[in-house]
């Protein structure tokens, strides 16, 4: 267990450090008075004055050169002080809270859907001979060739604009989630169905699988006792790899569908150069990424008795 948590804890600290450093550079790269901008982010655009800016300057040692400033910047970050948005003047934490819920909803629906597509498709490819498998390969390759936002765009053109079945973008009703989740799910499933297929073939042709049948177990029982876990393990492990794709997909899909999640927030903040929100959103994404990775590790650990024995 320690083997799982220590590296991840280290990664968590890396995320905070990395995001903090990059946004610090971003802050310094902008023209104008940095203390004024930070004061604005803390106390709100309306309450900011040159006095407040001076206070910040003193507190963060902004007049003492880059290195000292940098460390007080990181200190603020470690204390969880993320400031306020330069645009809307809301506290960043509050903005993030809203966004996180939306993103998690979209991500879990998309992931769930992708399983629903990938697992049957993969098993189909593994069991129904070459022709079926080749068809699935063509399908997967075609979807994979399209970036997730192109898939989303095509869905919008077809289902929203041409047929007018579903809303183009936005948030509110259950219909709104269909297209973004589906686009993301298709992109994820285009890759993961191959992983399911390869894992299934590996299990079905493994000597232990045949031996289980020779022992007298029926086909169904053999699949349940010996197939399912051997397929699940690589698929879950692959999920860890796919997390990168999923988070990147969320950034793109949320922006395309104006889904008010973290990805949309991050892209918007970058466009508006709203530094506190950029920092907060990037940080939250990084944390989410590390936490989800840890979850994947834990599930693998649960599934694989060999790993448990070693611990």
């Amino acid at each position: 267990m320690k083997k799982i948590f220590f590296p991840r804890l280290f990664q968590l600290l890396s995320v905070i450090w990395g995001v903090g450093t990059l946004t610090f550079i971003l802050m310094r790269a902008l023209p104008g008075d940095m203390a004024y901008r930070i004061a604005a982010s803390r106390y709100g655009q309306d309450n900011v004055s040159s006095d407040a800016a001076d206070l910040v300057r003193q507190e963060l040692n902004l007049d003492q050169g880059a290195v000292v400033t940098y460390f007080s910047w990181l200190k603020e970050l470690l204390q969880g002080n993320l400031g306020r948005s330069l645009v809307s003047d809301e506290p960043v934490w509050q903005i993030l809270q809203h966004m996180l819920g939306h993103s998690l909803l979209l991500a879990s629906v998309a992931l769930f859907l992708s399983f629903f597509i990938a697992i049957p498709l993969g098993l189909l490819g593994a069991t129904f001979g070459k022709k079926v498998d080749q068809g699935i390969v063509v399908f997967s390759t075609t979807i994979r060739a399209m970036p997730v936002f192109v898939v989303g765009l095509i869905f919008i053109l077809v289902f929203s604009i041409h047929w007018n079945w579903l809303p183009v973008a936005g948030f509110g009703s259950p219909e709104h989630i269909v297209l973004p989740a589906l686009s993301l799910a298709f992109t994820l499933a285009a890759i993961s169905n191959r992983v399911v297929r390869n894992a299934a073939i590996k299990a079905f042709y493994a000597p232990f699988y045949r031996f289980a049948q020779i022992k007298g177990l029926s086909s169904g029982r053999t699949f349940l006792r010996h197939g399912s876990r051997h397929i699940a393990l690589p698929v879950v492990a692959f999920l860890g790899i796919q997390l990168v794709g999923m988070i990147e997909g969320i950034v793109m899909i949320e922006s395309l569908f104006s889904w008010p999640g973290i990805g949309h927030g991050l892209a918007h903040a970058i466009f508006a150069r709203d530094i506190p929100v950029i920092q907060g959103a990037a940080l939250l994404m990084g944390i989410l990424f590390v936490v989800l990775n840890t979850l994947v590790d834990l599930v693998c650990y649960r599934l694989d008795p060999r790993a448990r024995r070693q611990a």
Binding site: A206, P207, F208, R210, F211, A212, I214, K215, G216, L217, S218, R221, R225, H226, R229, H230, L233, L303, D304, P305, R306
Partner: peptide, 28 residues
């Protein structure tokens, strides 16, 4: 019944000895 060539490979690497035998008594 046929005995496998390489027993290490013929046994499910994720299952304890007892369960691999118990399965047969239970399901067969």
């Amino acid at each position: 019944v046929m005995l496998p060539q390489e027993p290490w490979h013929a046994l499910d690497p994720l299952m304890t000895s007892l369960r691999q035998v118990r399965d047969v008594y239970q399901w067969v």
